[in-house]
Design a protein around this nucleic acid. Structure first.
Lengths: 204, 204
DNA sequence: TTTATTTTCTAAACAAGGTTAGAATCTAAT
DNA sequence: ATTAGATTCTAACCTTGTTTAGAAAATAAA
């Protein structure tokens, strides 16, 4: 009873999981505390033993989501050796982001889907973590530009935002049952952004 | 007073515009009829003279959004001549979609941002129009594949979804004041998906 | 100006949501 | 088995939201 988590911690996590799932499916405002409570066989009022408010709940979902994504990306990056090319780095970063997004879909899509639709206080509270993660990606493309890995006429800001858009949108359409593995998907995504879709020298 | 729109029509449109703006900023559930009414200097109850319910309002915003996007894309496609290459077609389609999304941002991002977070009835009602538009894009890539314009190892479903993700996400970050023209942006987007970001023959 | 029609407002009904305080119940250690 | 502490429930409060019916006001036609 020392190494395993207490009942408090277990319930706390169950509630957070249920909240993430519902926030991702129905949005922050579309999700009632009653529905969250029902999902864990509790009464709405009982949630307040674990969380101080609905905002706080969302806050925790958000923070966990960002943490999951960034740390998964770091893990993938750390697998690379020193001499890794930009292609390898981009593939690793995309793989990490996609793994996180699709494996912890409830959390990450709760975060993505509600972006910009939250009370200001909740939004601002998660901004620093988001900024830090964004900074990682900015740096990735800046280094690539300096190293001359990407074409000079490619806007690296647009490139970053495009990649983000594609990856994040996948949380909407991805189906864990029917689709191929997340790794294969991530590799295909990276390939499109690295090489485009056109046949070499082709234009028709 | 015959050719110009009646007061009824003018107010109807004003309400719809305000609703689209608020739905896009705060989500369907996060937007109250009172706030919509305030935006047009009316009382919440008065909206019911123009719309039968909040759902109906959202429905109309959705339909208008999809109509705007598809018809703008068609317009751009029609500018092409018979012998247009796949590159030209994709550029035109992306240009149309981006023009629609960024010019009518209130409507289109109301549609995009609330996807999957709406009451079932509202969601289903707009599905046929969405399907029809999706079918256009499917056909575009099928033709390209048959014509041998795209690489054989590119999954055209993923390609389509990636492009959609990138384009739709732009409604979140695009800033009409500070960014370059929509046309330039669309061209850059298309270029990334056609040719990738890597310098030719480069891999570092 | 008078009248008919259109448009908006007022006021209330009714439901639902977030929150809180205190009672009740459960759990685990003594 | 008893007791202290942890956890959940009950029941209410207060606000807010959608919706409706009828009164009031504005508009346009006669």
């Amino acid at each position: 009873m020392q190494l395993m988590q207490t009942k408090r911690e277990k319930t706390h996590r169950m509630v957070l999981d249920a909240a993430a799932k519902l926030f991702s499916e129905q949005g922050y405002h579309g999700t009632s505390l009653k529905s969250i409570a029902e999902a864990v066989n509790m009464q709405a009022g009982s949630l307040y033993y674990h969380f101080s408010s609905k905002d706080q709940l969302m806050q925790d979902v958000l923070n966990k989501s960002i943490y999951i994504i960034y740390s998964t990306v770091k893990t993938e990056m750390n697998k690379l050796d020193e001499a890794a090319s930009f292609s390898d780095k981009l593939k690793a970063a995309i793989r990490g982001h996609m793994i996180a997004i699709l494996t912890y879909a409830d959390y990450t899509s709760a975060s993505i889907r509600n972006y910009g639709q939250l009370p200001d206080a909740v939004h601002y509270a998660s901004q620093p973590a988001r900024d830090e993660y964004e900074q990682f990606w900015r740096a990735l493309f800046e280094q690539a530009e300096i190293a001359g890995a990407i074409r000079a006429d490619v806007d690296k800001h647009l490139l970053r935002l495009s990649i983000f858009g594609s990856m994040n949108w996948s949380s909407v359409w991805f189906n864990a049952q029917q689709n191929t593995s997340v790794e294969a998907l991530a590799a295909a995504q990276a390939d499109i952004f690295l090489h485009g879709c056109l046949k070499q020298g082709q234009n028709r």
